[in-house]
Design a protein around this nucleic acid. Sequence first.
DNA 1: ACATCACTTAAGCGTGTGCTTTACTAAAGC
DNA 2: GCTTTAGTAAAGCACACGCTTAAGTGATGT
Lengths: 107, 107
Amino acid sequence: MLNQLDDLDAVFHALADPTRRAMVERMTAGPTSVSELARPFQMSLAAVLQHVQVLEASGLVRTRKQGRVRICRIEPRALRRAEQWIQERRTTWEQRLDRLGEVLGEE
Amino acid sequence: MLNQLDDLDAVFHALADPTRRAMVERMTAGPTSVSELARPFQMSLAAVLQHVQVLEASGLVRTRKQGRVRICRIEPRALRRAEQWIQERRTTWEQRLDRLGEVLGEE
DNA sequence: ACATCACTTAAGCGTGTGCTTTACTAAAGC
DNA sequence: GCTTTAGTAAAGCACACGCTTAAGTGATGT
C-alpha cells in the first residue's frame, strides 16, 4: 500500500496536465485501450503511453494487458483522496469564515 | 478573469507540491504572512515567496500588502473548481459502475 | 510462415521547476 | 538618522517533464 499523503504529490501532478485530464475523462465512459486514448491527440503513441504510465504511477488509473492490448480504467479511490484533501481544506476555511461572521454579527 | 478550464493546469500543479499544500493548510487557520508561512521550512525566504507566487498565479491564494508585510489568504473558489472537476469524473465513473451492476444483476 | 498491429523501450532534446545566492527596496523600531 | 525587518528581483544551476524518433517484442490475422 502506498503512502497516502506523499501520493498526493503524484495524483495532483498527474491531474495538472490537460492531456492526462482528457484521458481520465475518456476513461469515465468505460475501460479504454491505449490507442483509443491516443485517438484525439496528435502526439506519438509513445508519448501517450508515457502519460498513461504517469497516471498509473499516481494510482489514478489501473491497467492490465489483454493479448496485445492494454486496457486502462479509473481507480476512483485515488480520485477520492485528492478530492477529500481539497474539500477538507476548503470547508475548514469556510467554517472559519462563518465563525468570524458570527463574531462580527454579535457586535 | 482567468479562463476557468485552462486554470485547472495551474491549480493542480500548485497543489502537486508538498510545501505548497502545507502552506495552504496553514492558511486555513487564517490569513498568514510570508515569513509565517516560511517558519516551518529550511528553505530561503526567496524560495517561499516563489511558492506563494505559484499559489497566487493559480488563483488558489490571494495576497495583499500591509505595510512591509504581505498577507496571504485562501481563495476557496479555486479550491472548489478543482474539487468539482474531480468529483464530476469520479461520480460519473461510479454511476457507470452502478448501472453495470444492475445489468449484471438482472441476468 | 509472414505481415500487421498494439504497444514498449531507450536515447535524446528543449523547456520548466525548485531551489540557491546576491543585491536591492521600503516600512518599522529606536 | 540609522538599523533592523520583511519582502522582492535577478541570475544561475541541477534535475524533472513532455515530447520526439528509432528500434524492438509479442499477439493476431491470413
